[in-house]
Amino acid sequence: MSGNGNAAATAEENSPKMRVIRVGTRKSQLARIQTDSVVATLKASYPGLQFEIIAMSTTGDKILDTALSKIGEKSLFTKELEHALEKNEVDLVVHSLKDLPTVLPPGFTIGAICKRENPHDAVVFHPKFVGKTLETLPEKSVVGTSSLRRAAQLQRKFPHLEFRSIRGNLNTRLRKLDEQQEFSAIILATAGLQRMGWHNRVGQILHPEECMYAVGQGALGVEVRAKDQDILDLVGVLHDPETLLRCIAERAFLRHLEGGCSVPVAVHTAMKDGQLYLTGGVWSLDGSDSIQETMQATIHVPAQHEDGPEDDPQLVGITARNIPRGPQLAAQNLGISLANLLLSKGAKNILDVARQLNDAH
């Protein structure tokens, strides 16, 4: 009898209710805020589980004197976190989706994509230029951005401005803007500013005609071990179906173009009346040469937790077992079709030249 009692006690200790789920994140304040929001949602869904947040620095956090596009290494903000995932030191990792490459290392998958916040870019102005827009900034004003995508589009749109690289986390960039006289304004992701509670610093939100956004911008991705079915089931509740389908289309477009950090590629997606609209573009580094096109596809946005595919093969690095396969494939095909259209119009040449120029500098 006593033996059975011990077995029952052991089973209770090993039951999922007692389990601590370890969540990996970057150390920056924004990353911690984003991770806290994901953990809060998981806690609400699984009140019996405990969650421990483990923060670590990544290569991208450490190399702050070089433009991201020049470092010449993929997975700048993800490699150390993936290493911890691989060694079973954490069970899942919360990322900004735009930091996750469209091809993940073997053994990993994006197990959830959370509801997207505003994906557009924002302009934050130096205190002396508050009330201005990019259009009304004085001639030769210097605007800071760490992104080739932003610089290429904005140089084309605002030729009277000069664009220079600015690195560091959000706090560091804002301090550089406010305390030094080098920059009249800087460009940042609206979602990051909003998550930090800095709505009052948003001086201008850039519309798609001015600057399309990065693939996955404004959404959070939760990376897990691809074979860890328990954790895949656990994080599945975080999937937002519309965000998922938009981001599958965007990531398929980028992957098929073979774009990345070192080339200016941008997108804009919208879901309306059962249609998914995808606009994508590529630019030369100075913005003088560009190709942009829009395509659409009829896609039914499923309700969360309709029964999805059981075999769960990944699409552009994403596993969404609780979302039907048909809409996911339709979104992926839309991204591939748009990429093929741009490639047929000469996108590869623009991107190759951009890559060579970026590598040469």
Rank of each mutant, 00 (worst) to 15 (best):
L220Y: 09
H239I: 10
E293K: 12
E179N: 12
V301Y: 09
Q304N: 15
Q194V: 14
Q275I: 05
G221A: 07
L137S: 07
G236Y: 00
T298R: 13
R175A: 11
G218F: 00
I350A: 05
H95E: 03
I110A: 02
A219E: 01
A40D: 11
Q181D: 08
Q275N: 04
V38K: 02
E223K: 03
R149V: 02
T41K: 09
E223I: 03
A270L: 02
T190A: 13
T294Y: 00
T279P: 03
I323L: 12
R150K: 03
L134E: 03
P127T: 11
K348H: 15
E80T: 12
G308I: 14
F163L: 14
R150T: 01
R167W: 07
F108K: 02
I53E: 08
D121L: 03
R173H: 04
P105D: 06
E117D: 12
P127Q: 14
E162R: 12
V202N: 02
V282Y: 03
S337L: 15
E209H: 10
L161C: 12
L85V: 10
I71N: 10
C261Q: 03
G192F: 00
N340Y: 11
R321T: 09
G287M: 14
P324Y: 07
V235M: 12
R164D: 12
L193E: 02
L81D: 03
C211P: 01
D307C: 10
E86Y: 15
Q328N: 02
L154I: 05
R195H: 11
L177S: 03
E82W: 06
S45R: 11
K176R: 11
Q296A: 02
G48T: 12
V39R: 08
E52T: 11
L329W: 04
V93C: 08
Y213I: 02
Q194M: 15
H160T: 13
E223L: 10
A151R: 11
L170F: 11
P313L: 10
I323P: 02
S165A: 07
Q296T: 05
T78E: 01
D121P: 03
K176P: 00
I63Y: 06
G335K: 02
V263E: 14
N340P: 02
Q155Y: 08
C211F: 14
A214E: 05
T279A: 13
P309H: 11
G72T: 09
S69K: 14
I54Y: 11
L92Q: 02
L100P: 05
K115E: 10
A122E: 05
E162K: 14
A112L: 08
C261D: 05
L49Y: 15
P313W: 03
V124R: 03
N349I: 07
T243F: 00
R201T: 07
S45Y: 13
D240R: 01
K128A: 12
L244A: 04
V142W: 10
L238K: 02
G346N: 08
R164V: 09
D307Q: 04
L206F: 12
G168M: 00
G131E: 08
A360K: 01
I299T: 14
L92W: 02
Y277I: 03
E162Q: 06
F77R: 01
L245G: 04
L244V: 09
V222N: 01
K115P: 13
T298Y: 10
L193P: 09
D65P: 09
G317T: 07
N358R: 15
A354M: 14
D178S: 09
L76V: 13
L148G: 14
I318R: 05
E293L: 06
R321K: 15
D65T: 10
L100A: 04
L64R: 09
G308C: 11
Q314D: 00
Q217H: 07
K43L: 08
T102F: 03
R167M: 07
S146N: 14
D240V: 12
V142E: 12
E182D: 06
L254S: 07
A122I: 04
V301D: 12
F77D: 03
R150V: 06
A297C: 15
L100F: 02
G197H: 03
L232E: 04
L206R: 03
I323D: 07
V237P: 14
P106D: 11
Q181E: 14
E82A: 15
V237H: 00
A320W: 14
L170I: 10
V215G: 14
H239P: 06
I166H: 09
I187L: 09
E242Y: 00
H95K: 02
K140P: 12
A252C: 00
Q50L: 13
D311G: 14
Q314W: 10
L351C: 15
G72Q: 04
E242A: 14
G131P: 06
E306Q: 13
L49R: 08
T41E: 11
P208S: 10
S45C: 15
N358P: 15
L85K: 04
K140C: 10
D289W: 14
I54P: 02
Q194S: 04
I63W: 09
L64V: 05
Q181A: 07
K74T: 07
K157Y: 12
A360C: 00
K345F: 15
P159N: 14
A67P: 03
V130L: 06
S165V: 10
E139L: 14
A226Q: 13
R246V: 12
T41D: 09
V39M: 08
L315A: 07
D99Y: 05
V222Q: 02
E80K: 09
E162H: 06
L329V: 15
G111I: 00
R195M: 02
P138R: 09
S344N: 14
L104D: 05
V38T: 12
L64K: 13
L234P: 04
D307S: 08
L97I: 08
I350C: 06
V224S: 15
R325M: 00
E89Q: 13
D286H: 09
A249W: 03
I63N: 13
S141M: 13
S337Q: 01
L134G: 04
V267Y: 00
R246A: 15
V93I: 14
P208T: 08
G203C: 13
P119M: 03
R321I: 10
E250P: 02
A297V: 05
Q180G: 10
T133N: 14
T319H: 15
Q296S: 08
V143Q: 04
K132M: 13
R156G: 07
Y46S: 09
A219D: 05
H268D: 05
P302F: 05
P47A: 06
Q275D: 02
I350H: 15
L161D: 00
A112C: 14
F129V: 10
H95N: 14
Q155D: 06
V123I: 13
M295G: 14
Q332N: 04
P309E: 03
S141Q: 11
I318Y: 11
V39E: 07
S262Q: 07
G308W: 11
Q204A: 01
G218K: 01
V316S: 09
A360W: 02
T41G: 08
A320F: 03
T41W: 08
K128M: 15
E209A: 02
G72W: 05
V93T: 06
C261G: 03
A339T: 13
W283A: 04
A84Q: 06
R321M: 07
I110H: 04
L76P: 10
V103S: 11
N322Q: 10
D233T: 09
H160V: 05
P101G: 05
Q332W: 13
F51V: 13
G48W: 10
S288F: 09
G192S: 13
N88I: 11
D91G: 05
D178W: 06
Q155I: 15
F253I: 13
G60Q: 07
R156M: 14
A191C: 04
D91R: 04
R246F: 04
G280V: 06
E80R: 09
A360M: 02
A152M: 10
L174D: 02
K98E: 04
E258K: 15
A320R: 04
P101M: 06
I231P: 01
G274V: 12
A191R: 01
A122V: 13
G274R: 07
I205Y: 15
I166W: 12
E209D: 09
G60V: 10
I205L: 13
I318P: 00
T294V: 11
D91C: 05
I187F: 10
A112S: 09
A226Y: 13
T133A: 08
E52G: 12
A252T: 14
S37K: 13
I231K: 05
L170Q: 14
G346L: 09
V353N: 15
M196T: 06
H268R: 15
R116P: 04
E223S: 03
N349H: 04
L42H: 01
I336F: 10
E52N: 04
A249T: 15
H300I: 11
G216I: 00
Q292Y: 06
Q153R: 03
V142M: 10
E139G: 10
L193C: 01
G111Q: 02
M295A: 12
T319Y: 14
T145I: 04
I53W: 06
T243R: 06
Q314G: 01
A152H: 14
L342W: 03
S284E: 00
G281V: 11
P138Q: 14
R355C: 00
R116N: 04
